[in-house]
Simulated scan of single mutants.
Amino acid sequence: TRALAIEFADKGITVNHVPPGFIDTPLVREGPVDVDAVAVTMPMKRAGQPEDVAYAVAYLASEEAGYVTGQTLSTNGGRYLV
């Protein structure tokens, strides 16, 4: 992300990274993980929703984020803070 951000910055192209955390999706619900049990262990006490990731991406794709580049915007509800 950082290398590409440096390479393309002078062309006005921003490069950022949005790694999703534990996101509650139908596929995750079908798996062996108890979504609700995991969610309560997280700082925000809930699993992420697909919209949470979409909002982060929409921000980075917006004109408001035109000066943001080379960044990682983790959409994980604070999971890795503890």
Rank of each mutant, 00 (worst) to 15 (best):
V38T: 08
F8I: 00
L81H: 03
V53Q: 03
Q49L: 12
T14P: 07
G12E: 12
I23K: 01
V82I: 14
S62T: 07
P20G: 11
D34S: 06
I23D: 01
K11N: 13
F8G: 01
A3I: 08
D52G: 08
G31P: 06
V35S: 07
N16R: 10
A56Q: 08
T25V: 04
M44L: 14
L27V: 10
P43G: 05
P20M: 12
E7G: 13
L27S: 13
M44G: 00
A47K: 05
P20Y: 11
K45W: 03
S62A: 09
T41P: 00
E7T: 12
P50I: 05
G70A: 10
G21D: 02
V53T: 08
I13W: 12
I13Y: 13
N76M: 06
V82S: 15
V38D: 00
A65H: 08
D10L: 13
G48W: 06
G66P: 04
T75H: 00
Q71Y: 04
G12V: 09
G21H: 03
H17F: 12
V18D: 04
G31N: 11
D36E: 15
D10I: 06
E30P: 02
Q49F: 05
T69A: 05
A9K: 13
A39S: 09
A47V: 03
T75G: 01
H17V: 05
A5G: 10
V28K: 04
A47L: 03
G31R: 10
T72K: 09
H17P: 00
A39C: 07
E30V: 01
G12H: 07
G31I: 03
K11E: 14
T25Q: 05
L27C: 00
I6S: 13
D34L: 02
K45N: 07
S62M: 06
A58C: 03
I13D: 14
T25K: 03
L27Y: 08
S62W: 09
Y67W: 15
D10E: 15
P20N: 11
A56T: 11
R2Q: 15
D24G: 04
G70L: 09
V82K: 15
F22K: 06
G70Y: 09
G21K: 02
T75P: 01
P19T: 03
P50G: 06
R79F: 09
L60C: 10
D36M: 07
A56H: 10
A5Y: 09
V18N: 02
G77F: 01
A56E: 08
S74M: 12
L73K: 07
A37V: 08
V57G: 02
P26E: 12
P50M: 06
G78M: 09
T14H: 06
S62D: 09
E30Y: 02
G66Y: 01
D10C: 06
A65I: 05
A47G: 05
L27D: 13
V35Q: 08
Y67K: 00
S62L: 07
P26G: 10
Q49E: 14
G12S: 11
G78W: 12
T14E: 04
A39M: 06
E64C: 00
V35R: 08
A3Y: 09
E51R: 10
N76T: 14
G77E: 02
E63W: 01
V82F: 14
A56R: 10
V28F: 08
V68I: 15
G78L: 07
G78A: 11
A54I: 04
P20D: 14
D36G: 07
